[in-house]
């Protein structure tokens, strides 16, 4: 199966040292968790909580 193309948008502090929007290729069946892992976003930051 071919890779899938995904538009990844990051918000607020997740953009720090990364990007705000980027088109990326992922293996078929990739989940949001895979995106998070590849971008090396710590799990505790995934649910962005504002005060």
């Amino acid at each position: 199966m071919n890779d899938i193309t995904v538009t990844v948008k990051l918000f607020a502090t997740l953009r720090e040292g990364r990007f705000d929007i980027r088109t990326m290729s992922f293996f078929p069946g990739a989940t949001v968790a895979d995106v998070v892992r590849i971008l090396e976003i710590p799990e505790k930051e995934v649910s962005l909580i504002l005060y």
């Binding site: 607020a12 502090t13 995934v46 649910s47 962005l48 909580i49 504002l50 005060y51």
Partner: peptide, 18 residues
């Protein structure tokens, strides 16, 4: 749903301020 899985008290505001 917005805060699912969140275990802490306060969010990133603790570091960023307002």
């Amino acid at each position: 749903e917005l805060y699912a899985g969140y275990k802490g008290e306060r969010g990133v505001e603790e570091r960023l301020g307002n």
